[in-house]
Design a protein around this nucleic acid. Structure first.
Lengths: 257, 257
DNA sequence: CGACTAGTTGAGGCCAGTCAATGTTGGTGG
DNA sequence: CCACCAACATTGACTGGCCTCAACTAGTCG
C-alpha cells in the first residue's frame, strides 16, 4: 500500500498539479487497470482507447475538509473519485452554502465549470480522498480522435442534468420525511451499483450537510432519522446506517405528494 | 401564414418529423440568417461553420399546451426556441409534475435525453411556439468536423447544469418571497439579454406552473404578487408584469437567508 | 481534562399549505 | 355582440409542518 518513491521518475507518469501531495497513487491512475472504469467511462471504449486515456490521467489527493476546487477558480480539469467522497455546493451571496451533490467512488465531477471556464460550485472532501485528474484541454483533444470518448463525455454531462432534475423534484415537491427516505434510497442504489451493500453503509455527510442537500434544517433531519428508527425502518448508529425496511422507505417517498 | 406546399419539394429542406404541422417556416430554419444565433451558438462559429449547420436544422411547431417531447420518448434531437416559449417538467410517480424550467426565444432544450437516449422530462408549449430541430445524429457527425460546434455543445450542457444548481439553491434555501423575487429578476435578466425590456414583460406560465417551479402553491404565489404590488415593488395586471423597483427585489433575494 | 464539534430532544412560533368562497379573464357559440 | 362557461386568480380563515431557540449529551482531539 505504501509507495516506492523511485517510481516517481517514470517518464510516462503525468505531472502532479499545483501543490497537491504526491504518492505512488499518482503512478497508478491508469484507467486501463482501474476497476472503476465502467463507472467513469461506461460505453464503447476498447483497450486501445483506454491506453490513450491513460496518458492524460493524473491524480490528486485531498484530506477531509479540503477543497478539490472552489467557486470562481479556473476550470481546467474533470475529476473522477477513486477513493473517498466529496460534496459539491454552491454559495449564496451571504456565504451560506447549499449542498448540491454527494459524490462517491467512480463519480465524475467538475462539469459545472465548462460553461464559463470557472467553477460555479465548490467540491470539498468529506474524508481523505483520491481523485483522478483529467486535464480538460487534453481530454478535449483526445475526444476529437476518439468518438466513443466524446460520446461518453456527453452522456456524463447529460446524466448530471437528469440527476439535478430529480433533486429539483425532491426539493420542490416532497415533504421532509419523503426527502430523507429518497436520500437514503438513492445512496443505497448507488452503493449497490458499485458492488457494495445496499442495506448497510456509512454516511459521510454531517446532519447539517444532509439538511442543506435536502433543503431541511439539521434538527429536522435528526428527528426524522429518530422517527424512522423508532418505526423499525432504519437503524442509525452514529454514521452507520442500516436500511431494515427499504419497502417502507419507498412508500414514504411516494406518500402524500 | 399558411404554407405554399409546392416548396416542400425543396431537396435542401430537412424532412418534417413525426406528425408535426408543416409551414413555410420549415424552409427558413437557417442559422446563418437567424438573429438569435448568438444565443444558440455563441462562440467561434464562422460563416462557413454556420452554413454547414444550416443543412441539419429543421423546424417544428407546437400549439399552446402541446408537447414538444414527452417523458420516455426517444431522444433524437435538440431544439432551439425561435418563437414562443415552453416549460419543461419532470413527473413524480403519481403523475404530478414538477416544473424544472422555463424556456424562451433562443434557449436550447432537450439535453436531458442525451444520457439514456430517452427524455426524462417533458417540454410543453406555453403558447404557439416554433422551434428549430437539430437532429442529434447529424449534429454529432458535424461536431466531429467542427471543433467550435463541439465546444459550444459542451458549453450549453454545462450552462444547463449551472442553471439547475441555481434552482437547487433557490429551492433549498430561500423563503417564498425571495423565491418569487429571484424568479422575477431571472426573467428580467433573460429578457434583457435578448434585447427586450427588463422591467416589463409578459408571464407565460400560470400561477400554478410558477408555483411548481418555485416549490410553492399557487395561492402563495398569488399572495406574494399581491404583497409586492401593495409595496409598490411590482405591478401585475393579469400576465403583464412591471418591475417598479428592481433594487428592492434584489434585496428580498438576499434577505433572511 | 477541557474545548470543541456533532447529534438529540423539547417547547413554541411562524411561514406556507389547505380548504373554501368569490372574482376575473378569455375563449366559444348563439 | 353578448351570454356563457371554464380556467385562472384572489383573498380569508385556519391548520400544521418545519424552523428557531435552547438545553443537554456523546464523542474527539490536543
Amino acid at each position: 500500500m505504501v509507495p516506492d518513491a523511485s517510481q516517481l521518475a517514470d517518464a510516462a507518469s503525468p505531472q502532479p498539479i499545483g501543490g497537491a501531495r504526491v504518492s505512488i497513487d499518482d503512478l497508478r491512475a491508469v484507467c486501463s487497470g482501474c476497476s472503476m472504469r465502467e463507472l467513469c467511462m461506461p460505453f464503447g471504449l476498447d483497450a486501445d482507447d483506454l491506453a490513450q486515456i491513460d496518458t492524460l490521467v493524473g491524480s490528486r489527493q485531498r484530506h477531509k475538509g479540503e477543497a478539490l476546487y472552489d467557486t470562481g477558480e479556473t476550470f481546467d480539469a474533470l475529476y473522477a473519485v477513486r477513493v473517498g467522497s466529496l460534496k459539491t455546493a454552491v454559495l449564496a451571496e451571504d456565504g451560506r452554502e447549499q449542498v448540491t451533490g454527494y459524490h462517491m467512488i467512480g463519480d465524475i465531477l467538475g462539469f459545472d465549470g465548462m460553461a464559463t471556464d470557472r467553477h460555479v460550485s465548490r467540491a470539498i472532501a468529506l474524508e481523505d480522498t483520491d481523485v483522478c485528474v483529467m486535464r480538460f484541454e487534453r481530454l478535449q483533444l483526445l475526444a476529437q480522435r476518439v468518438p466513443a470518448l466524446q460520446s461518453n463525455l456527453r452522456r456524463l454531462l447529460s446524466r448530471e442534468i437528469s440527476r439535478d432534475q430529480s433533486v429539483m423534484l425532491l426539493l420542490g415537491s416532497m415533504r421532509a420525511e419523503a426527502r430523507v427516505a429518497a436520500f437514503l434510497l438513492d445512496l443505497a442504489e448507488r452503493y449497490r451499483r458499485r458492488g457494495y451493500s445496499s442495506t448497510q453503509y456509512v454516511l459521510r455527510m454531517t446532519g447539517e450537510e444532509i439538511g442543506s442537500y435536502l433543503g431541511l434544517k439539521l434538527e429536522t433531519v435528526s428527528r426524522l432519522f429518530s422517527k424512522l428508527q423508532n418505526e423499525g425502518i432504519v437503524r442509525v448508529q452514529g454514521r452507520n446506517v442500516a436500511l431494515l425496511d427499504p419497502g417502507a422507505l419507498r412508500q414514504l417517498c411516494a406518500a402524500r405528494e
